[in-house]
């Protein structure tokens, strides 16, 4: 048996697992997990100013990468594909334009890319990555919410045990934690802006929870 760890990119590519484009194409409209909530219509009706703003970053490509952080060839390959290095420090993230990488655990990263580019990126990874690694398209399993506004920290404080003070939660930090008894991967993208990767099956629950918890601040839905 050949040693997976020492395979070159070409050898790895030859063993290519079944890679399937999960998105039919731009001509067929996808439906996000919050499709039923019709956020686009709510954005037109609701108030325009309030303490909390919500936007669904829908139909992004979610790629879960597991590889060896001590393997310099793999790290270089990731940089060639995405133009940005894997964040190796715990709880950090990195981004390059529309591509962003979140540290999930010491050997696992979550990569978000524009939905229609997912297949291309995945194919590029299959061509470039040497050695033993795993890349899984988990786009259908979760969705992304962006919360912002002057009361966003107060809103999240109700839901998560994480300390959200800027001292211990600077911009760019990523934590996987509990959010209102469900789980979420929270990343701070600005002083008063957070990005939540939540489970598809919990997205309706989180949406209802956010509406309830933001009653006192007011909620603006952005399309």
């Amino acid at each position: 048996m050949s040693d997976l760890n020492n395979m070159t990119a070409a050898e790895s590519a030859a063993t290519k697992a079944a890679v399937m484009n999960q998105v039919p194409g731009p001509e067929i409209e996808g439906q996000s997990p919050l499709h039923h909530a019709d956020l686009a219509s709510l954005a037109k009706q609701g108030p325009k100013t309030s303490g909390v703003h919500l936007r669904e970053l829908k139909l992004l490509g979610h790629l879960t990468l597991r590889c060896n952080p001590a393997n310099a060839d793999q790290l270089a390959a990731v940089e060639r594909v995405l133009g940005v290095a894997l964040p190796l420090q715990p709880l950090t993230s990195s981004e390059n334009g529309n591509y962003s990488i979140r540290w999930m655990s010491p050997d696992e990263w979550l990569i978000l890319v524009p939905g229609l580019e997912t297949f291309d990126i995945e194919t590029k990874f299959r061509d470039e990555m040497p050695g033993h690694y795993s890349l899984v398209n988990s786009s259908g399993g979760s969705t992304v919410l962006e919360l912002s506004g002057e009361n966003v920290v107060e809103l999240l404080k109700k839901a998560t045990p994480i300390d959200l003070h800027a001292k211990s939660f600077p911009v760019g930090k990523v934590v996987s934690t509990l959010l209102a008894k469900s789980t979420a991967t929270i990343r701070r993208t600005g002083d008063q802006r957070f990005e939540l990767v939540i489970r598809r099956s919990f997205s309706d629950y989180i949406w209802l929870w956010i509406q309830d918890a933001s009653l006192e601040f007011g909620l603006v839905v952005e399309a």
């Binding site: 715990p90 709880l91 655990s105 010491p106 045990p161 994480i162 934590v175 934690t177 509990l178």
Partner: peptide, 12 residues
């Protein structure tokens, strides 16, 4: 020891 910070028990 992997995340390198203190967290609440409910995460574990």
């Amino acid at each position: 020891p992997h995340c390198g910070e203190y967290r609440e028990e409910e995460e574990f």
